[in-house]
């Protein structure tokens, strides 16, 4: 029983990471109907930047903030330079650009920071476990940071004018332009935010799984599974899906398939969603009257 509780708790901890990346995917999907296959590699690159800043002598939280800002700019610039000209291109071209980005980021990371596995510091280091030994201080701290970011994103989209304009631009770009919204700027902002979410997820998971250029590829897979499970067009669903996949991964890994096949659980989840509930658990069924 204690073991089960432990598995669920640590599933929720990694689930928070998946939820962040899933949310980043859904944000871009909603506004452009593109799936950013490079989201994981971009996050890994950001995490390496954070490590380089820490190694250069910046305090942890200074490096954290700087990485968030750099990632935001990186995301926005990629949207403006690479994705904007692809706005009306066939799907194959946009998918191709994402794959190209994935390759470039992956090998840039290896090129600049080397392929050796590195440890990444945690700001929550202390030797005694909390909550009666259930969670390490880092796990708890990372969860708090992740949740804070998710809540901030929610508040931003729900309660700010800019957030509303970004949602409007995603749902209906034509009408958005007619009320004066600069849709192009909104897309760039969305990319910036998505890159930021990925960067935070990367910095929070790196102390657990260690840092290497392929660190996020598995995490991206769980995020896909989470996004599909929650409904690829539903941000709240994607977050819930991300947490759910974290728990599924841990429980499945511990009791069903063993840790060797953990990654395949993401694949099975994806296929199961497609077979049984293609719109996801919370896929929006839009009520319309004509």
């Amino acid at each position: 029983m204690i073991g089960l509780l432990h598995q669920i708790l640590s599933g929720l901890v990694t689930g928070g990471i998946y939820a962040s990346v899933a949310l980043a995917l859904v944000m871009i999907y909603q506004s452009t109907h593109h799936v950013n296959f490079a989201q994981g590699e971009m996050a890994t690159f950001s995490t390496y930047i954070a490590l380089a800043l820490i190694d250069a002598g910046l305090p942890y939280w200074g490096a954290f903030v700087a990485t968030v800002v750099i990632s935001f700019i990186m995301g926005a610039v990629i949207q403006i330079v690479l994705m904007r000209p692809m706005a009306n291109a066939p799907v194959l071209s946009s998918v191709g650009v994402f794959i190209g980005l994935l390759l470039v980021f992956n090998s840039l990371t290896g090129w600049i920071f080397s392929y050796t596995i590195k440890s990444f510091p945690s700001p929550f280091e202390s030797s005694r476990p909390l909550l009666g030994g259930f969670l390490s201080p880092h796990e708890l701290g990372a969860t708090v940071v992740t949740l804070a970011v998710l809540v901030a994103v929610y508040l931003f989209f729900r309660h700010t004018k800019l957030g509303l304009a970004m949602r409007a631009a995603a749902f209906n770009p034509v009408s958005s332009r007619l009320v004066g919204i600069r849709v192009g700027h909104m897309l760039a902002l969305g990319w910036g935010l998505a890159a930021t979410l990925g960067a935070v997820a990367g910095m929070m998971i790196a102390p657990v799984v260690f840092l290497d250029p392929n660190m996020m590829s598995g995490i991206l897979l769980y995020a896909f599974a989470g996004a599909l499970l929650g409904g690829i067009d539903n941000p709240a669903g994607a977050v819930i899906g991300g947490f759910a996949v974290g728990v599924i991964e841990n429980l499945g890994g511990a009791y069903v398939v063993g840790t060797e096949l953990k990654l395949s659980l993401a694949l099975f989840t994806i296929v199961a969603v497609l077979v049984f509930r293609p719109n996801g658990l919370f896929g929006r069924v839009l009520v319309t009257r004509v």
Partner: peptide, 23 residues
Amino acid sequence: PALRLGGLYLALTTFALAVALPQ
């Protein structure tokens, strides 16, 4: 299952298959 839905679902599932395969 993937082709029934069209769109990007095949790209997503096949990508997942490729990532999970070595394991």
